[in-house]
């Protein structure tokens, strides 16, 4: 019993520590003060001013850029990664191993190495950096994760199903669409979500591939902000909203998964 109380309180203390900074952001999103940590009375002004737009145009456009880049990169890596996984599964063990080794390079590399290597690629080829290079860079570090979340589903699948479909007269494309894709869907979805998360959270690779044409994502915007010495106050309610929506979403998914099991 004592053991249980001790272990529960250990987890509790850890969680409180992990959440303390986030709590601070949420609490101080309800006040107007410019500096995080100053309380100048309760106010919802920051919340309303995010939705007004106009005034904080650069923040809104940074947010849009982040979401658009995230969606395109996640969609492209899901298609590329799923195709690759299906292909890899049908290769000889030796080539499988070779491709998977290269596939883990972007995962094992710290982001700054990926960033520098891609930066050197783009400058050596004289490609001007902007939207396209950021998206290509994001696809580079997202796709390996998609491959890794789709491959296990293929390995768990009955390989005869696909052959059976072909024997029954389905074209390879029909067989892929009707037999393979439904089985791979959960892996593709979690790959997509993971890719999207990685993309919107990325800072280093984006900074090195975004060029200097004034394109900003949320993370480069915050970085520039922090270097200037402060955080745009509107980032507080924005982070609070993102955090609460993700929390609710995950709790709902968790509840649904639990219900399905029962």
């Amino acid at each position: 019993m004592i053991k249980r109380i001790l272990s529960t309180s250990y987890l509790g203390i850890l969680l409180i520590m992990l959440y303390a900074p986030i709590l601070i952001i949420i609490i101080f999103s309800f006040t107007e003060a410019k500096v995080l940590g100053n309380w100048t009375g309760f106010s919802l002004k920051l919340y309303s001013s995010i939705f007004q737009g106009g005034i904080h145009h650069s923040l809104t456009s940074a947010l849009w850029n982040t979401l658009i880049i995230g969606l395109i990169a996640a969609a492209a890596s899901t298609v590329l990664g799923t195709m690759a996984a299906i292909g890899i599964y049908n290769l000889t063990p030796k080539s499988q191993k070779a491709i998977q080794m290269v596939n883990t390079i972007p995962i094992l590399n710290p982001d700054i190495i990926t960033a520098i290597s891609l930066f050197l690629l783009f400058v050596s080829l004289g490609i001007s950096q902007g939207y396209t290079t950021v998206i290509l860079a994001h696809i580079t570090f997202c796709t390996p994760y998609v491959v890794l979340s789709v491959l296990p589903r293929l390995r768990r699948m009955n390989p005869n199903l696909y052959e059976a479909a072909l024997d029954l007269g389905a074209t390879p494309f029909l067989a892929v669409r009707r037999i393979l894709l439904p089985e791979l869907k959960p892996g593709m979805i979690s790959g997509f979500i993971l890719a999207f998360t990685l993309s919107i959270d990325d800072f280093v690779v984006t900074l090195f591939t975004i060029g200097n044409e004034g394109l900003e994502t949320l993370s480069t915007y915050i970085y520039a902000d922090a270097r200037r010495g402060g955080l745009t106050p509107e980032l507080r309610p924005l982070s609070a909203i993102i955090f609460i929506s993700v929390l609710v979403l995950l709790l709902v998914i968790n509840q649904r998964a639990a219900k399905k099991k029962l």
């Binding site: 590329l80 050197l120 491959v147």
Partner: peptide, 23 residues
């Protein structure tokens, strides 16, 4: 189906192996 790896292999060569060699 094994040919489906080709796009990704090309992608890996161009965006992973070549950049690493550039370093």
């Amino acid at each position: 189906r094994r040919n489906w790896t080709i796009p990704y292999v090309l992608f890996l060569v161009f965006f992973v192996l070549v950049p690493m060699s550039l370093i």
